[in-house]
Design a protein around this nucleic acid. Sequence first.
DNA 1: CTTGGAGATGCTATCGTTTGCATCATGGCT
DNA 2: AGCCATGATGCAAACGATAGCATCTCCAAG
Lengths: 346, 346
Amino acid sequence: MAGAKLVDVAREAGVHVGTVSRALNPATRSRVNAETAARIIEVARRLGYEVNIAGRALRTQRTQTIGALIPDLANPLFPRIVRGVEDSLEKAGYTALITSTDNNAQRERRMIAALLSRQVDGFLIASARLEDQALEELLQNGVPVVVLNRTSANARTSAVIADDPQGIADAMAHLVALGHERIAHVAGPGDTSTGQVRLQAFEAALDRYGLQRRSELVVCAEAYTIAAGTRCTRDLFNRGKPFTAVVAGNDLLALGVIDALKENRIPCPERVSVVGFNDIDFAERMSPALTTVRVPTYELGARGADLLLDMIYREREISTVTLPVTLMIRESTAPPPLPGTGLFGL
Amino acid sequence: MAGAKLVDVAREAGVHVGTVSRALNPATRSRVNAETAARIIEVARRLGYEVNIAGRALRTQRTQTIGALIPDLANPLFPRIVRGVEDSLEKAGYTALITSTDNNAQRERRMIAALLSRQVDGFLIASARLEDQALEELLQNGVPVVVLNRTSANARTSAVIADDPQGIADAMAHLVALGHERIAHVAGPGDTSTGQVRLQAFEAALDRYGLQRRSELVVCAEAYTIAAGTRCTRDLFNRGKPFTAVVAGNDLLALGVIDALKENRIPCPERVSVVGFNDIDFAERMSPALTTVRVPTYELGARGADLLLDMIYREREISTVTLPVTLMIRESTAPPPLPGTGLFGL
DNA sequence: CTTGGAGATGCTATCGTTTGCATCATGGCT
DNA sequence: AGCCATGATGCAAACGATAGCATCTCCAAG
């Protein structure tokens, strides 16, 4: 297990090492006599031969390994994506080097350097920012890259994303149908595509339903975290403008919003409704169970990996795949309180 | 970025490639003239030289990469552990190849083969079973291995684990102090050390408090999942023996228990208390907030990685590190119902 | 009988890095 | 002045796999 090499197999099978290499590689197997190939394969199996990827990589410039940059593995959104990635890669004999970037640009650069050093064949980047210099450099150097979940301002990159505008539109339709008119938005970071796109979709929905855009009811989080959601909501309170619902940039922000409501003993959904985004694991078990937009995360990862493999092997042109979303209505949304009983005496 | 090699740096610095290699490696730097070294380093920086790990690996038999086998990334326990692993490894210039095994022995073998093929320097295994043939083979071949969170029946492996007996003891003390006497246990899979150890600790606690061991109140889950927890609890109901509290083998099982209670409109904690294990993220936000035993997951991963690096570099003898746990008392535990009002008219 | 083509396999350079050994210069010491 | 220890650097052989090219065998067609 720990070490038969091509030369060992060759000696044992009584053939030259080159023949063994050809016999063991399905793509070149046709070039060697069928019986010989069968014998070689049998010997290889018996000796427990496993190709040494380092040796192969040196010669072929392919490591059959890709690098995956994940902003935060503790966000349940990402393990699901990773799982999709793994499954797609495994079919092709690929493996992923997964690293957390913490949304830290410096750490991201270090990680990219470490991955390049390991000669990864391509990158899956779920941590892209709109203006992402590291991503820019990778593209400039012709490294295959697929961006997941988010996009970059740079149009030259392939991406797999969810239909964010549709998700926000569905959420807004739901809230409007319940009777909400004063809807706030705790937006994701402005340097991410998801933050911007969802904010735009939010404003578009306001227009569509003839609701007024109020800048006091929009606050932008500095990160996709629970703590940031809480801070933003406190900020919203301090502005003193009444609202009966909050559309959060993602589920963690939504949980933060709910924390802030609890702090102020404002019942959710009785006095304020909250909608999240992504439908992370456990969202339905929270208290209250979170109304949110489900994103097909596993598929997102799987499609992303497929796209990347395509780029590596077929130098395919860039493309963007958009996956459909579904609004999951649970307990965190309800009709607004009657006038006079609402927040700030609304 | 995508490609200066030693020979490029050598040419540019007007020196031999061997000298460059020595100058760039801190361990051999003393063997080259200080000024020359400084010049070489400067040239390397300017050209954006990054060592080609494949080339180095071929020569040194070290890939500076380790393999991490995780049973289920979607269990929030594991991303935390992984994060600790990453941080420890990064300090040493190492990277982890992370793979999910799904508790599937066949998949695990495939993954191990893929990782061995990539010449990983060692393994971190969080998915060990008590009788784990793949693990056995790795040890036999002298591959450095550290087992995380669980142990194996095989004593020859280093491990970092939580103080499971203490955790269960604390949980039992808490329940007994609340007045519970009929306590059930939904144990983890019998082929995992955590399943067995926690079960034993559960029974030891029964003895300690003079409570009767009742085999009808112990049921063993086939996996650490929510669904398994639910199935086990239904099973418990079918046996018809009354109980007022359940100690679950881990948090996912506990969530499954709570689901089964809800199914039967049995309020938790009013009529049945539930305790989990691990304190996964979001446990405190569940409904009800889960009383559970906190395991220092980040540290568990970090220590495990340190231990593994030690084994790789210093061939240290095997050792086991046990980390302390803390009982987190939340909303899923309460005094038992008064006699006559309890389950099955207890 | 010769020739040529096809199929099978051997030979060998190569990928980028490391490292034991050889070489060379310098300068101190006898 | 001659010698040697020392420090600095060059040289070249690996590590394991791949692939272009060469070689060889065999058989069919001319």
